[in-house]
């Protein structure tokens, strides 16, 4: 398993640093037409780092490959087989990604407090442990509200009210 992981780590690193080197740096690192005095251009350092990362990725692949071949003589499990075997775990991970994305996009719409209440509630459900339902329910409501009060009172942070609720929700919480 470790050899497989090293191989995938090398593969991901090689692909990522290649993307940075050949796509992201040429597009997203602009070199100004005039640099005062002798100053290395802004793309020099990211390019050096990406090259080192790319070389290390290839090295990880090369080092993992023979050992992986040795392991595969004893046990052959393809990538498809692995995905099928771990489909529940993958579904849970996708669930986490969807939840985080929904939180980020939902935050400006429903406001900070309701979004964090929902996020906490769903996270409790996703842990799959329902032995302490009372605590889960209580914390889901009380904890974000307490934090909201703490941060608005102490640091005067302006949390987004949300397009749906406007000022009414924060007024209600402050009243409580």
């Amino acid at each position: 398993m470790n050899q497989n992981r090293d191989f995938y780590a090398g593969l991901v690193a090689t692909a990522f640093f290649a993307l940075v080197l050949f796509v992201l740096i040429p597009i997203y690192v602009k070199v100004p037409s005039f640099i005062p005095g002798f100053a290395p251009p802004p793309d020099m350092w990211p390019r050096v780092v990406a090259i080192i990362g790319f070389v290390m990725g290839v090295l990880a692949l090369v080092l993992a490959f023979p050992k992986m071949r040795e392991t595969s003589k004893h046990q052959v499990t393809g990538l498809g087989g692995n995905i099928h075997r771990h489909k529940v775990l993958i579904a849970r991970f996708v669930g986490v990604l969807v939840l985080f994305a929904a939180f980020v996009y939902g935050l400006p719409v429903i406001g900070f407090v309701p979004a964090t209440v929902l996020l906490l509630g769903v996270l409790f459900i996703m842990t799959g442990n329902f032995e302490r339902k009372f605590w889960m329910f209580g914390l889901t409501i009380i904890f974000p509200v307490l934090l909201y009060l703490l941060f608005t009172e102490v640091t005067h942070t302006p949390f987004p009210e949300g397009m749906l609720f406007s000022n009414s929700l924060s007024n209600l919480i402050t009243l409580i």
């Binding site: 900070f112 964090t116 996020l119 906490l120 996270l123 409790f124 842990t127 442990n129 302490r132 605590w135 889960m136 914390l139 904890f143 974000p144 934090l147 909201y148 703490l150 941060f151 640091t155 942070t157 949390f159």
Partner: peptide, 20 residues
């Protein structure tokens, strides 16, 4: 505190702290 209660609460604490 059991981890199933603690870790989600830590995330919410981090979200508030980092937004602030």
């Amino acid at each position: 505190i059991p981890q199933t209660l603690l870790l989600p609460c830590i995330l919410i604490l981090c979200v508030y702290g980092i937004y602030s």
